[in-house]
């Protein structure tokens, strides 16, 4: 083969590689366009707005970093942030505490498994808005379900107004959230459990590992990636909680169940300060990114391979 032939061949190979790259790019182009239009552009606009005094009505005025400076003194926002983080920790533990046993229960195929899987997953398809309205009614002290049922069963003599105390609101909403979202985490964890190769489990079995050891030392480490996904989705979802608190408690009693997103909504659309709301959103975004990175790092593979 002459030198020239080799050069042509190499060129051809490079050409086909470039074509393949181009084809790949074309395939992801629609998705990239969507990300650009629905994520990147709004994100840039939010950043832009956060540097303005941007009223809901009227002309915006450039104020530089004023919104971010004001935030430092916004006790309500940091209080809401603290509550949101506390809520996220409790919700995530509660969701995993319910979803993991459920996932173990429905993992193995059986005649009734499909029914259980469906039953546990069903609440996920109910919208948060509808579920919250349902709960708001359940929690009504006079005409609801919880308090009248407790009185009827003789558990308490006096009606219990769950909406009147922070604990009442917090734990009632927690039950709603677990009921509503545990099914989703269950499906994720179930696929994780099923993805663990059977021969490894079998080998462990032969080596004398008991059921707990097989779960703790084999399955759990091998489903690290699924765990990370389920955890990040759960934490991010909890950090952005809004609907249930807006509909059920209005952030009450006495602003004690005010979440970060609720405060952003309130500043933007009740106080008409869109610029300040945008600045708060940016800070929440940064906090959320940091938390997510921290979770990925914690659940990284010990061998250092990609997740």
């Amino acid at each position: 083969m002459s030198q020239a032939d080799l050069a042509v061949k190499t060129r051809r190979r490079m050409g086909s590689q470039r074509r393949r790259e181009m084809a790949g790019l074309l395939f992801v182009l629609p998705a990239m366009a969507l990300v650009l239009v629905f994520f990147l552009i709004p994100l840039c606009m939010t950043v832009w707005m956060s540097f303005h005094n941007w009223p809901l009505m009227g002309a915006p005025k450039w104020t530089g970093l004023d919104n971010y400076a004001a935030m430092l003194k916004d006790r309500r926002f940091w209080g809401a942030m603290e509550f949101t983080i506390w809520y996220s920790i409790v919700a995530t533990i509660a969701i995993f505490g319910v979803a993991f046993p459920l996932a173990l229960f429905v993992e193995r195929p059986g005649r009734t498994t499909a029914i259980y899987r469906t039953a546990f997953f069903l609440p996920v398809v109910v919208g948060f808005g509808s579920a919250s309205l349902l709960w708001a009614w359940f929690m009504n002290v006079d005409s609801g379900l919880f308090s009248p049922a407790a009185v009827a069963m003789g558990l308490t003599d006096e009606p219990v107004n769950l909406m009147a105390t922070t604990d009442g609101v917090f734990w009632s909403i927690m039950v709603l959230v677990v009921w509503k979202t545990a099914g989703f985490s269950m499906i994720l964890l179930m696929t994780g459990l099923q993805s663990v190769p059977h021969d490894i489990i079998e080998a462990a079995h032969i080596d004398g590992a008991n059921r707990f050891q097989r779960f703790w030392r084999i399955k759990l480490p091998l489903m690290r990636r699924t765990l990370a996904l389920a955890l990040i989705l759960s934490v991010a979802g909890s950090m952005l909680a809004f609907d249930q608190f807006y509909i059920i408690s209005n952030g009450g009693p006495r602003n004690s169940t005010l979440t970060a997103v609720y405060w952003i909504f309130s500043q933007s659309f009740v106080s008409f300060k869109l610029g300040y709301g945008a600045a708060l959103s940016m800070v929440l975004l940064v906090i959320l990114v940091i938390i997510s990175i921290a979770q990925l790092w914690l659940l990284r593979s010990p061998t250092g391979d990609a997740k």
Partner: peptide, 24 residues
């Protein structure tokens, strides 16, 4: 011009004041 912030908002000072001073 700040009627909403002061009086109407569910997260505002007016409602918090009422709830805390009536029941706190």
């Amino acid at each position: 011009v700040v009627y909403n912030d002061i009086y109407n908002s569910a997260t505002g000072p007016w409602l918090q004041f009422l709830q805390e001073s009536f029941y706190g």
